[in-house]
Design a protein around this nucleic acid. Structure first.
Lengths: 212, 212
DNA sequence: AACGTCTTGTTCGAAATTTCACATAGCGGA
DNA sequence: TCCGCTATGTGAAATTTCGAACAAGACGTT
């Protein structure tokens, strides 16, 4: 990769994800070239912001012209490291876990759930979306065999730490936690928390605020 | 409510959601009182940050003692406007929509999905989790009747804007969009986008970065 | 009631992020 | 080939956010 700068703001990464989303829709609508100004409007951000975000990774545009959409998508994906397939392990095949297994965008977007774990004896052995549910104690063997790199925690909150321990023990390289509780893992393993109630809270707050 | 300051950073709102989550777990474990220092460690933030975040809304602590956990939870919920039930309309009963309907935390957390809409003729009329799926054209009648305030979009990306239009037309007050596309609505209606691939991208990026 | 201890609420300086403004560079037409 | 047009890439200013330090205040003990 071709990173020009040391530290990249987390907010930039978030925006890059938005740019990809908008760019792919633009491409589908037949746009070959786009200016930072137009892309900015579509993403509701400032155009300098876009140029600066991209500048962290390289020079992808053509002065006087703009950005070639397909090329820019490719460049951003390369920059983020999502120009390949990441193999994932799911722990917790409940409501959320099941939904994730069924969510076929995973593969489209470069993430493949290659193994599903659950400690419920009633679930172990069941086949699900072409995958057998296995006890998490087997993670340590299977992770190297299957080359699992990212762990997805979708357990109840009180089981999240245990799941995290299994993942760490299996030398997983990153964790995304859908359970509503914090987990502790060694510093070198990145963790992201997903809780869409955050967004509902934010909506509720914004609505309430407008009405005071 | 009792907001002391004009503008509140979006990041603060996000952190308040984290504080609630951690505080509820602390309460479950029998902690009655907590200091900003300990809460900070549990949330992986700075303790001044916590005190400052709370200061936007009032004074909730006792000097020399700390915060009473239950009381603080209540105060934060009041501050965010989630000390009541928000009635929601779901549009799009596909994979994601179904998962949301089944996700029973919604009610626990103060959001109730009171109506489900989908334009697929095969789905209209079906009963789902005690709710009949209705054509979105009926939103405008039902929204005032049922007092629907928040719209949840879970359609395919190319249908998201149409769904948003229906919601705006029905005088909904806020929108949360799970579809991977941007939508345009009048400025006074807050919109939040949820896409957990953002987090997967972030993990992938952080892993890749460590390996260059 | 006075004192010591402990933790909050707040101030102020530092750091990070965003925006502005413009020099730079590619493209197309004359 | 030159010139004008346009949109990028970037340095510097403005704004926002964060963190360290400290004054203020509550509780318990003497």
């Amino acid at each position: 990769m071709n990173i020009k700068s040391e530290h990249i703001p987390k907010a930039t990464i978030g925006r890059l994800a938005v740019y990809i989303q908008v760019l792919e829709n633009l491409l589908r609508d037949g746009n070959d070239v786009i200016s930072s100004e137009k892309l900015a409007r579509a993403c509701s951000v400032n155009s300098s912001q876009i140029r600066k975000d991209l500048a962290y990774f390289g020079e992808f545009g053509v002065r006087g012209v703009g950005y070639y959409v397909q090329e820019l998508i490719t460049s951003i994906k390369q920059s983020l490291g999502i120009d390949r397939v990441w193999k994932c392990a799911l722990i917790g095949v409940g409501n959320m876990g099941t939904a994730l297994l069924r969510h076929h965008d995973f593969e489209k977007r470069g993430f493949k759930i290659c193994a599903a774990f659950d400690c419920d004896p009633d679930k172990i052995g069941l086949e699900f979306e072409g995958m057998e549910i296995v006890c998490p104690t087997h993670l340590k063997e299977q992770a190297p065999e299957l080359n699992l790199e990212i762990g997805i925690i979708a357990t109840p909150p009180d089981r999240a730490q245990r799941a995290a321990n299994h993942l760490v023990d299996a030398n997983i390289r990153g964790i995304i936690n859908f359970a509503p509780s914090r987990i502790n893992v060694p510093k070198h393993i990145p963790v992201e928390y997903v809780d869409f109630f955050d967004h509902l809270y934010s909506i509720a707050f914004q609505i309430t605020l407008g009405n005071d």
